[in-house]
Design a protein around this nucleic acid. Structure first.
Lengths: 213, 213
DNA sequence: TAGATTGTTAATCGATTAACAATC
DNA sequence: TAGATTGTTAATCGATTAACAATC
């Protein structure tokens, strides 16, 4: 999707979608069936105008004089975010962070199916966490190809990230969620999506704010 | 610092500072002593103009015809980000994610001193991780007050986050790094800084990109 | 000095907000 | 119908990029 494409959605809008998703789920769980952009804007601390603009990038989900039906808006946003695709994911590197991710409801809530765990450590291989057993990274390409894995979660040391990602990309993995401090990019696989998580940057932004409060 | 203050630095700039910090450290570790905005821009994949604009928010760190001295620029940016403040932090909730954070070099690299661990679980209290022993959350206010704790890292269940944060804010904690899925805000403590980390949002943005590639 | 590269102003671009006609 | 609230256009605001004089 190019920047000049008529259907182009700006990065800023995309980054806000998951937040709408969360707020709408909250509304649903509180049995609120209907909401206006004004009321939602007050809850989310944004402008009503922004909400309407954002949603209208994808279609007219509301109804004049009424507002938005929470259930159907939630369902639309879920679809936009690919929740219904049922993407399958593997975790590469079952260290502390990898283990922390395994046990969260995060994946299930977002329609992502955690389908495999891999590590190089012989002491870990064969051990089970939740429903899954740690496999040898030697076998990850085969596994990803055979099981149609779309997402690889990289929670392994920085030094291994690039080579690992190349191997997985060649095995058909479409997106990487990279937690290692390395800034991953794969110029040979221009269609592969990379989401680099830099927790350290988030901590530093907090420190900046404290220092300059 | 208000938006109309003459020294106001935009959020966008602040969010980029940690990235400069990382790249400069990398340059330093590769013994690169000098860099122009042009060369740094190519490495970081941004415009040279943006780099010069960003840095000039804080002062004229460069030299015409020469560029920037990597060591001194790194040191300036460190100072801006509060690395030299030596902020002390505690982790509240020693679950998987809490444990994962304890063992990272993240804090040390950024001048933050991890100084205490707290949990409600009797089986965990008294156990050691690295240099630290898990304490009872009942004692966290006293500990934070006595040890001048600036940062609380919230890796505890969503349901406990708000009450815990209120208690800590009243004990002088200045900033919260919140990993629970709750969107924390503390209207009664307007000067307290809150950095909400939403890993799920990051995963969803990745899914969106995969779905719309 | 000549060449390089900054600091900074001006121009452009994009994102947010305001306004209001359309319409439920 | 009258009231409410959307979808959408226009206005504003802010952030990014371009340009260049200043200067090392």
């Amino acid at each position: 999707m190019s920047k000049n494409d008529s259907k182009y959605i700006s990065k800023a809008v995309i980054r806000r979608l998951p937040r709408y998703f969360r707020y709408l789920r909250d509304l649903l769980s509180n049995d609120i069936m209907r909401i206006s952009s004004k009321e939602l804007s007050e809850r989310m601390n944004v402008t009503a105008s922004q909400i309407r603009q954002d949603l209208n990038c994808f279609g007219g989900f509301g109804q004049q004089g009424y507002g938005y039906n929470v259930k159907s808006l939630y369902s639309e946003i879920s679809k936009i975010l690919g929740v219904d695709k049922g993407y399958k994911a593997v975790i590469i590197g079952v260290g502390n962070l990898g283990k922390a991710l395994i046990n969260t409801p995060m994946f299930e809530k977002r329609g992502v199916k955690l389908s495999g765990l891999f590590d190089v450590d012989c002491d870990l291989i064969g051990k089970s966490f939740g429903q899954l057993t740690v496999m040898n990274t030697d076998d990850m390409e085969t596994f990803c190809r055979e099981n149609d894995i779309s997402i690889a979660i990289l929670t392994l040391p920085k030094t291994e990230v690039y080579d690992t990602a190349i191997r997985l990309a060649s095995a058909g993995v479409k997106g990487f969620w990279n937690f290692s401090n390395a800034e991953l990019s794969l110029p040979d696989y221009p269609d592969v999506i990379i989401e680099n998580v830099h927790l350290g940057d988030s901590l530093m932004a907090l420190c900046y704010e404290i220092a300059n409060a």
